[in-house]
């Protein structure tokens, strides 16, 4: 289990495709940044097809999280220092 799953998190979308997760984030959040696959966020390296969206919602980050057996989830987690790292990218 990844450390990210042990962090306090909210699941906004579950068992979706990557495309559905991407559309969900783009549709529901205004402040969206895009990163390449492999971008390190907390303790994970992001999985996805190019231009992976990460939304900023006040102090929280909203992003797709892919698992090989369960598809892609959209998670909301308190951003802490990852917020400034993302914004300065």
């Amino acid at each position: 289990m990844s450390c990210i799953e042990k962090m306090d998190h909210e699941i906004l979308l579950a068992n979706s495709s990557f495309k559905e997760a991407k559309e969900f984030i783009k549709k529901n959040f205004k402040e969206v940044y895009y990163v390449d696959p492999g971008y390190k966020l907390f303790d994970i390296y992001m999985i996805g097809i190019s231009d992976i969206p990460i939304a900023v919602d006040e102090d929280y980050l909203v992003f797709p999280y892919t698992k090989p057996c369960h598809g892609t989830f959209v998670l909301k987690i308190k951003g802490d220092e990852e917020l400034s790292k993302l914004k300065s990218k």
Binding site: S17, F18, K19, P37, G38, M46, I47, G48, I49, S50, T66, K67, P68, C69, H70, G71, T72
Partner: peptide
């Protein structure tokens, strides 16, 4: 055999 595997391949 599923969408997640495509994402891993793209990565």
């Amino acid at each position: 055999h599923n969408d997640a595997n495509i994402s891993y391949a793209a990565t």
